[in-house]
Design a protein around this nucleic acid. Sequence first.
DNA 1: GATGAAAGATGTATAAT
DNA 2: ATTATACATCTTTCATC
Lengths: 158, 158
Amino acid sequence: MDIVDRRIIAALRENGRATYAELGRQIGLSASAVHERVGKLEATGVITGYHAVVNPSSVGLGVTALIGIHSTDVADDEDVAAALAQLPEVESCYRVAGDESFVVKVRVATVDDLEHTLGGLRRIGGVARTRTTLVLSTRFEGRPNTSEADAEVNGDDE
Amino acid sequence: MDIVDRRIIAALRENGRATYAELGRQIGLSASAVHERVGKLEATGVITGYHAVVNPSSVGLGVTALIGIHSTDVADDEDVAAALAQLPEVESCYRVAGDESFVVKVRVATVDDLEHTLGGLRRIGGVARTRTTLVLSTRFEGRPNTSEADAEVNGDDE
DNA sequence: GATGAAAGATGTATAAT
DNA sequence: ATTATACATCTTTCATC
């Protein structure tokens, strides 16, 4: 992972459909060199995927909520996490420090669906309580964080 | 927005680098038809972008936190949102209902950086108080939500 | 590791149905 | 809105440095 890899990653975070030729021009490398580097970044798990980002309300998912989940004392959080992963409306799932065990983000069509989802969450074994925060508007989300470009270069792996 | 568009969107959420030819084969359409549909989806703001997803710790961002932000009574939340957007370590920003005004997700390299970021947040005019929840592990994030495929088709726009 | 060449696949515009 | 055509561009492999 050198500076060139970092620049490729930054460019692909900005535009996941950038062609290898485009990337090569952008950073001064041949397309085949970019191709090989990107392949390695994918193979080593640095780049985990490429996704289109969609305006949620255009696909009929106008309701977003953040839900804190309290586990019971006896719960195995791995089991809870696995159960959460089974619910398609749970878009993100974070294991957190504090009195809650997880915070999840759910996206559904209507508040009725949200009610239904909350019922599903509480029916998971090991879930004691939920705390729901309704999202009024998403200002921005999953924005490419470029603060690592400024950070010290720490030769982690590779 | 018909069922074909929805299938294209679902495919591009799964794999944002899928070629038009690939998409066409997948859903039984010519590449040029797919090309035109995708162009319209982009132009009408249904698809807002394509991004590579990166393993955060591989790029030196191993610390994630969810931060609730209380505004002062006199604060203009638009100003607060604008200020939050200026901080590169703030990846996502939600305006929420409840006694907090915003919940943001930040990603930084170290807990020292987190402390620094919190200082920056509290220095924003209109921010009264912050509540930080440290993320221990991200189980999954920004997962393609396919529950709309099951949902009733509601001819919203187009 | 990077390059450049070459073959095949894909992207993109235009015109036609 | 889709298909057909056509040319430019890109992907991918491989010999080479």
